[in-house]
Every structure is written in C-alpha cells, then in structure tokens.
C-alpha cells in the first residue's frame, strides 16, 4: 500500500511537470491551431538560461533561494523573448499558408534551436544544482514527498489558477477567447489579433521556462536534448486533456503522470517512453478531442 502511495505522489509530481509545459502547447494550439513544435526547445532554453544565471550568482556567493528566484525570473524573461521572436520569424509569415507549412517551419525551428544550444554551449549533460531547500517544517513528511516536489506541485497549481483567472476575467483573456473562436471576426470587433497571439506565445513560453528551471533542479541534469522528449510528453498530455483547453491540459498531464508512474512501477520501466507514445496514438485514434475538449465538425 505504501508503494502505491509512493507511485501516486510520484505521478502527481510528474503530472505537474508535464502540465507546466502542456499549458503553453494548449494555449498556442487553441489560438492559432498550430502544434508549436519548438515549445519543448523553449523549455530547454529556459533551463539553460536558469543554469547559467545560477552558476554566475552561486560563484558570487549569493543565497540559494534568492539565486533560484532570480534565475527563474531571468529564465522566464528570456524564454518569453524567445517565444515572441520565434512566432515573429517562423509562424507569423505563415499564418495564411497551409497548416502543414507552419508545422514544417515549427519542426525546423525546433531543430535549429537544439543545435544552436548544442553549438553555443555543450553537448554534455550539465549538472543542475538543486536549489530548493529541504524546509524544516516539512521534515515529518519528507520521506513521503520531498519539499522540491511540493514546490513543483504548488507552482503548477498556482500557475494554472492564475491562467484560468486571466482568461476568464481580464480583457486580454477575453480577446484571447475571441481570437481562438474566430480570428477574422475578432479583428472586426477591434481585437489586435497579432498582439493577442504574441501575448499567448509569451505566456506559454513563460510557464515553460518556469517549468524548465524547477524540473531541472528536481532532476539535477540538463542537456540540449531535454526539450524534445519533454515536449512530446507534454503534447501527449495536452491532447489527452483536449487540446485548446487549459483545465484539460492539467487533467491530461495528471492522467499521463499517473499512468506512467503506475506503468513503470508495476510493469516495466524499459518501455516507459514507448508507453507514452502508444498512449498518444490511441487517444488520437479513438478520442481525438481528448477528455475535456469538444469534438469539432469539419466545415466545408
């Protein structure tokens, strides 16, 4: 029974991690129906930027918590800037083009960013310091779930609530919903669609970067390739939950996290990634609209 709870909590952490990345996928897809293949790379760049800032400040002898906060902020700023720029270069000129073109462009961008980091930094795995301290008040529970994992879960929950509020109650959220429903009509009623899309990319990238720093400090290792598999899994989660829906992304991530955790815990850990991909294939074939998505009828 204890093993079961261990797997349950492990799955929760895993799910929260996927959720932070999946939110960006789902928001971008909701608004321009594009699978932003480079999203995983943004997450990776966030982790790298975070690592660089952390190394710099640690050498200067700053306090770990302050370092972590500053690193997260810098990573968020930079990843948002990357997300913004990528949209302007690789996606905006293709907004009228067939969807396949934008997808190919996204794949190209992903390949480019991976190799950019590989060439500018290194191909080795870099150790990422664990800066989330073991809080003292958490001592009695730390054998069940570490404080780093608690921080990840709480951050995900906060981000998700904030995003839901943003989309439900603010003006920009309303503009986003309008753009997602009908771009032309939104433009006609005075929504600056380009700005809305840019902001969506910025928000999505920011959550990915936050995820990047937190996850890297939880896992303890990064290299230029981490974005690909994380991105694919987050995408699976987003699709599972119903792509385009924010609560769906979180639900999907949790479901994926738990199934993966139980699968590796009870069956086999060799085929963990195979399992994730199989999951994806089956959802797309049998329930492409996901758990919380609405099914779409094709308009002629």
């Amino acid at each position: 029974m204890e093993y079961f709870f261990e797997l349950l909590l492990g799955g929760l952490t895993r799910g929260s991690i996927y959720a932070l990345i999946a939110l960006g996928y789902t928001m971008v897809y909701g608004i321009i129906q594009l699978i932003n293949f480079a999203h995983g790379e943004i997450y990776m760049i966030g982790a790298f930027t975070g690592l660089i800032v952390i190394s710099l400040l640690t050498l200067l002898g700053w306090n770990p918590i302050v370092v972590l906060i500053i690193a997260s902020v810098v990573a968020v700023i930079y990843s948002s800037a990357y997300g913004f720029t990528i949209e302007k270069i690789a996606y905006k000129p293709l907004r009228q083009a067939p969807r396949l073109s934008a997808l190919i462009s996204a794949i190209g961008m992903s390949l480019f960013l991976q190799n950019y980091v590989l060439l500018a930094q290194t191909s080795d795995f870099l150790p990422f310091p664990c800066l989330i301290p073991d809080f003292e008040f958490w001592e009695p529970y730390s054998h069940i779930i570490s404080s780093a994992e608690v921080v990840i879960i709480i951050t995900t929950a906060t981000v998700m609530i904030l995003l839901t509020l943003l989309i439900k109650f603010t003006k920009i959220g309303k503009a986003m919903r309008a753009t997602a429903q009908d771009k032309k009509m939104a433009m006609l009623v005075g929504v600056d669609v380009n700005r809305v899309i840019s902001i969506t990319f910025i928000i999505g990238s920011a959550t990915a970067a936050l995820g990047g720093v937190l996850i890297a400090s939880h896992v303890g290792m990064i290299n230029f390739y981490i974005g690909f598999i994380a991105g694919i899994k987050a995408f699976v989660a987003a699709v599972l939950g119903g792509i385009g829906s924010i609560p769906g992304a979180v639900v999907g991530s949790l479901v994926l996290g738990w199934t993966e955790s139980f699968f590796t815990g009870y069956i086999s850990s060799d085929y963990e990634d195979v399992f994730a991909f199989l999951f994806l294939v089956f959802i797309l074939i049998f329930r492409p609209q996901g758990i919380m998505g609405r099914s779409e009828t094709e308009k002629v």
């Binding site: 594009l34 396949l100 199989l278 294939v281 797309l284």
Partner: peptide, 18 residues
C-alpha cells in the same frame, strides 16, 4: 494533417525504442 504528423512521429519513435 497535424495530428497525423504527431502520430507518425510516435510510431517512428515506438519502433526505434522497441
């Protein structure tokens, strides 16, 4: 179109991982 791309990607990776 785009779902097809991702599923084929998934299949490709499954075969490699197997």
């Amino acid at each position: 179109g785009d779902y097809l791309a991702i599923v084929t990607l998934g299949f490709g990776e499954i075969i490699r991982l197997v």
